[in-house]
């Protein structure tokens, strides 16, 4: 008895020591990878405080020698940035809300039901995702023009009300939810929609949060489609405005950095505020068996 306890004690101590080393190693890995991930972003932010001379200097500096806010002032005075923000918010929030809803419903439908045409429709979606856009974008533009959608918010939004990526991802996440759970709900008299909203949605919160942030980022940074669809300042989005600080011969990386930093900020804020949903999945919602 006593003997046993002693053994337990010593292995426990060895355990603690090993755990400590592991923790340190984990942090070393996390931090060093974090630095690689962070530096380009930090470069952009720091660059937005440099003068045009410093930003084009060689070898480059990392920390601004003589930090200035002039770039931000210039960006705001040269272009109606506030208006671009508004446009970008409109063309990002609406499609994101709709996509998250339509993609999660479709993903659930594909994952948890058997029905005629299921595999065919699913593979059709995957297949259309595989054709490179240089070939499809011209016919799509011609269609949009004939429908009178060029230079409209509708035209900007209509192409991103659903996503193959989202449907596929939500399908994969719904697969991991046990069927028993759904059957139990059905026995309790829940409708199929009730199952989706009361069981699937809470259980896939991390996936929904992920999809939200991905879709939002994608819409926020969308470039190609807005480039074709927008011919007026009234509808211009942030990503269209950023290259306007460069020309064929004259480039102003400092202004590009300032404009990009401001453009990126809302996405990062959303990501940070969205954080708690990433961890609120099955593990926390009471599903233990």
């Amino acid at each position: 008895m006593l003997n046993n306890q002693q053994i337990d004690h010593s292995t426990g101590r060895r355990h603690v020591a090993r755990a400590k080393i592991l923790t340190v190693l984990t942090y070393v890995a996390l931090v060093s990878i974090g630095v690689i991930m962070l530096i380009p972003f930090l470069w952009m932010v720091l660059g937005s405080f440099k003068t045009v001379r410093e930003v084009m200097q060689f070898p480059p500096t990392f920390i601004p020698k003589d930090p200035t806010l002039a770039n931000y002032k210039e960006v705001f005075s040269r272009l109606p940035f506030a208006h671009y923000y508004l446009n970008t918010i409109i063309t990002s929030v609406i499609p994101t809300v709709i996509t998250v809803l339509t993609a999660s419903m479709a993903g659930f439908g594909f994952a948890k039901y058997r029905f005629a045409g299921r595999n065919f429709i699913f593979w059709l979606i995957l297949a259309t995702m595989m054709i490179p856009y240089p070939v499809t974008i011209v016919p799509l533009y011609v269609m949009a023009y004939r429908a009178g959608l060029v230079n409209t918010y509708t035209g900007l939004i209509i192409v991103s009300l659903s996503s193959a990526f989202g449907i596929f991802m939500m399908r994969q996440f719904c697969l991991t939810i046990p069927d028993d759970l759904l059957d139990a709900a059905r026995i309790d008299g829940s409708s199929e929609f009730g199952i989706f909203f009361k069981i699937i949605t809470p259980l896939t919160k991390p996936a929904l949060a992920t999809l939200t942030i991905f879709t939002f980022t994608g819409n926020w940074n969308a470039y190609m489609w807005p480039l074709l669809m927008v011919n007026t300042d009234r509808l211009r989005t942030l990503s269209l405005a950023i290259p306007l600080f460069n020309g064929q011969y004259a480039s102003f990386p400092n202004l590009v950095y300032a404009a990009s930093t401001m453009a990126v900020l809302p996405v990062i804020l959303l990501f940070v505020f969205n954080q708690r949903y990433f961890t609120e999945g099955i593990a926390m919602s009471g599903l233990k068996e």
């Binding site: 809803l101 419903m105 439908g109």
Partner: peptide, 12 residues
């Protein structure tokens, strides 16, 4: 299932 997949598939 058809109701669930309809909007997502149509919009895409």
């Amino acid at each position: 299932p058809y109701v669930f997949i309809f909007p997502g598939v149509l919009f895409y």
